[in-house]
Nucleic acid binder design. Sequence first.
DNA 1: AATGCCGGGCACCTTCGCAG
DNA 2: CTGCGAAGGTGCCCGGCATT
Length: 406
Amino acid sequence: MKLTTISQKSDYTFKYNRILGRHGWLRLTPAYGVKLVEKLLISVEKDACILDPFSGTATTALVSAEYGNQAFAFDINPFLVWLGNVKCQNYSQEYINSVRSLAKKALQKYKNLVKEDNWLPKIFNIERWWSGYTLKLLSALRTALVNYFGEPEEDKNNGIIWIVFCRLVIETSSAAFNHVSMSFKDTVNHFAIESIEKLFLTILDCILESAETAIQGNAKVFKIDACKINSFSNVQIDKVITSPPYPNRISYIRELRPYMYWTKFITEAKEAGEIDWATIGGTWGVATSRLLLWKMEENILPEELFATVEKIKFSNGKNANLLATYVLKYFHDMHLHLASIRQVLKDGAELNYIVGNSTFFGNTVDTAALISKSMHMLGYQKIHSEILRKRNCNKALYEYCISATW
DNA sequence: AATGCCGGGCACCTTCGCAG
DNA sequence: CTGCGAAGGTGCCCGGCATT
């Protein structure tokens, strides 16, 4: 394969999604492109049932539904389940009008709350994210929104306004999301009361406008661990389109913290670590420490994996042992996933996994080859992978599409 | 030592100005 | 308008530092 001719194709990443209505509502740094899902859907029958076991921002589910298909998605993170379902719902004009008018009422009322002590999220070093004054305004506005709409919760039909609030929270923060992973700008922003209100109304209009577009198909996101799919056995799937976490140390929890704290999906730092421990490839908080204690119970994995793990283990890296275990557990969990998803697949179902390779202390982890090997051991057929695009973080990193049938 | 949270560095991409 | 180089922008790494 001629690697030198593979370009980055930024229209396959989140950047392109930002301008696509609902797809641009909230950013999760690692998100794959709408275009890619569209390409994979071309050959699909109108009544086909699509599954994304690693939903994330629900790109697959939403695109499938927009094209009129029936789609299901799973995620282990309750915030992402909530976000996905808010994005994939249809909203009547009456509902949208009522959100707009209630939001404007809340915006008039919140000023009276600014001088009071309103609820604030327990984010570590919070003044790093927002100035004291901005926090006063945000917490007062949050309290007013709760009064008119209620707290953000699964199955409460109030999601859109909290998407608007999340956008306000992130746009007023000093977090730089224009990065591989979120980092902080040197200075904390200061917002005048008028500019926060103006920003809120701009975001409100933008999100309500894209919510008006009707979705033809159906999509629903469930809180299911992709390694234990047996709890979802009444549906048979025609096609899987998904992008699982990669074996790198990108932490989804880390990127989602501002959203999850402000919506109360997490209230303590410990909870963030617990969710990341349950996530494939998570290393935030306690997840890192637990890795050191982790032992594989039964060797079910392809031989090739152990050569890769050994190379990392005996490299000169400071955390070589930790990261060797990290890689082992990643492929162990992916193997469990590939085993458990089999029971929801129709005979002949087609799988498409978008994955990236990675390196640890200079040692390549060939994700596509290792996942392909697991698929082979588990009885999948017609397994092949192709390079989709060059990633732009490290010379040797590419994105692959592994396809197979069941 | 365990736990919890951050960010430097740089290849590659896009944009822009200017010459022809 | 097109071609081209310079300048500017951006990204699913890979750890590592700071507290407890």
